[in-house]
Design a protein around this nucleic acid. Sequence first.
DNA 1: CAAGATGTATAGCAAAGGCTATATAGCCCG
DNA 2: CGGGCTATATAGCCTTTGCTATACATCTTG
Lengths: 116, 116
Amino acid sequence: MAEDYVELIYRLEGESADGVRTVDLVEALAVAQPTVTKTLERLQRDGLVEVEPRRRVLLTAKGRELAQASLERHETIVSFLLAIGVPATHAELDAEGIEHHVSETTLMAMRRFLSR
Amino acid sequence: MAEDYVELIYRLEGESADGVRTVDLVEALAVAQPTVTKTLERLQRDGLVEVEPRRRVLLTAKGRELAQASLERHETIVSFLLAIGVPATHAELDAEGIEHHVSETTLMAMRRFLSR
DNA sequence: CAAGATGTATAGCAAAGGCTATATAGCCCG
DNA sequence: CGGGCTATATAGCCTTTGCTATACATCTTG
Ligand SMILES: [Mn+2]
Ligand SMILES: [Mn+2]
Ligand SMILES: [Mn+2]
Ligand SMILES: [Mn+2]
């Protein structure tokens, strides 16, 4: 979950000028608001985000690092799936799950395949 | 979890003559024994296994069906990863996670790739 | 055939990730 | 500037997947 959250926050940061709010995550993740709030508490505990009470959700340096790495992995997998002929919709959906289970080794194989 | 359990039971059935026991699953999954016992209770509730009290763990028809489908998916993914150059150890480990997140569409793309 | 070893069940606890209901804070607008 | 809408917080509950400790059953073996 941590990866999905920070990756999403990182994405949303790039889309909205005035910061990411809990409600943005609620909408994007399609879960109930208290679920997001509680998860954000765990992410704070783990030093990945900072939450301005009743206001914005911010990534810490550590959180941003994880987000960038996660996003890159996500994109590699999507590109790879597209390359082997998976239609875009499925590529995106499957990548969302697969991304949490590929080793760096497998990721390298995918990159190698993409640049063949 | 259900998929991992039935897949494992199905595998073990083929390896031992006198039936699969809780302890076999405990060893293979490297979790504590009560964890397996409790998970088996859920699998029974869901009609996937039958447990002879203090004796064997058996797959129901439904459980066996899921097991076969899971095993096939597992093997497709391992073959595919090997085909793109992932070393065997990682292919096996990664497949164990990936298998629960690939759509039938992506699986088809993998099969197509394998038979190219 | 009775220990002792091995295997299984049961109780109780915890963390993660869900939910609903409700209280409260912040914002916007008439 | 106050009332209502929107967002957030809080309480309390649930399921899954883990764990340890311990009781109990079964099997093996001297
Ligand atoms: Mn994901
Ligand atoms: Mn992702
Ligand atoms: Mn698996
Ligand atoms: Mn598997």
